[in-house]
């Protein structure tokens, strides 16, 4: 099923590359990325946690610019869902997860090529509508009787972080809904259906003026590490390694930091 579009793309790409060759632009092509297949357009497939959507798309533009003829394709979803797809044999080159627990599933299944590296950290923040109808100022306010709250379901990474924070702080929150991923929880705030949600700081920044973020001390109890790894069955192993490198580089760090991540110290 996947082969047909790839063949078409390859054919179209070859034609385009033919023109490039005529213009002697091939000198720009990075040797290590293209190797013997230099004239073939290639697709790097990255499976990444939904919270990485904006940053990774920005990095993909740079990657494609640095590797002419290469296309980066994403599958953004909940980390656990992606880990399931990878262990079931989905063709992917790189996996970037929103927590180390999910990454461990992939490593334990023998699907990782290298050692997973933490490249960013994210922590929880309270998201409220701009007018903050329930007057939330801190975590304890979420336990109020008339406060309607959306939390991430415990099955997904942001939910695990939520549980840790609530357990450590002893705040007892009864949410209106357990959302299946962090963006769904944020959407509840955007639509004004809830008074507050616990989401990642990066999601608050991505939402712009639609929501207001409130930092709270207790968030330190659950800082999420984001590991990335190239996969054992990667169709494009060399591109995969370069993507991991880009994500961990100063360039990658700048993009991630602008989006609200804490960037891990380079190892």
């Amino acid at each position: 099923m996947r082969d047909l579009p790839r063949i078409l793309r390859r054919a179209a790409g070859s034609a385009a590359l033919g023109l490039l060759l005529g213009a002697a632009a091939c000198a720009e092509v990075d040797g290590s990325a293209t190797g013997a297949e230099g004239s073939d357009p290639r697709t790097l497939t990255v499976f990444a946690a939904a919270s990485l959507t904006d940053t990774f798309e920005e990095l993909a533009e740079r990657f494609e610019a640095d590797h002419p003829g290469t296309e980066v394709e994403f599958n953004f979803a909940g980390s656990s869902e992606l880990a399931g797809q990878i262990t079931e044999g989905a063709p992917a080159d790189v996996f970037a997860s929103a927590d180390t627990r999910t990454m461990a599933l992939v490593v334990d299944a023998g699907a990782a090529e290298g050692e997973p590296r933490v490249f960013a950290r994210n922590s929880l923040e309270i998201a409220v509508p701009p007018d903050n109808p329930a007057g939330i100022t801190g975590l304890a306010d979420l336990a109020g009787e008339d406060v309607r709250v959306a939390l991430c379901a415990e099955e997904v990474p942001c939910g695990a972080a939520t549980r840790t924070v609530l357990e450590e702080s002893g705040v007892d929150v009864e949410p209106a809904t357990w959302e299946p991923d962090v963006r769904a929880a944020l959407t509840r705030v955007r639509l004004g259906e809830v008074d507050a949600a616990l989401v990642y700081r990066t999601d608050v920044i991505a939402a712009g003026d639609d929501v207001t973020g409130i930092d709270f001390e207790e968030a330190a109890a659950a800082v999420n590490d984001y590991p990335v790894v190239d996969l054992a069955d990667a169709p494009q192993p060399d591109l995969a390694a370069e993507w991991v490198e880009l994500v961990r580089s100063g360039t990658g760090g700048g993009v991630l930091e602008a989006a609200g991540f804490d960037v891990a110290a380079p190892e």
Partner: peptide, 19 residues
């Protein structure tokens, strides 16, 4: 939304279990 016993029907439970 999704809340056990109130709005979590079987398909929702299946989806979350899948995670």
């Amino acid at each position: 939304g999704n809340f056990p016993g109130r709005t979590q029907t079987m398909p929702l439970a299946v989806y979350l279990a899948m995670q």
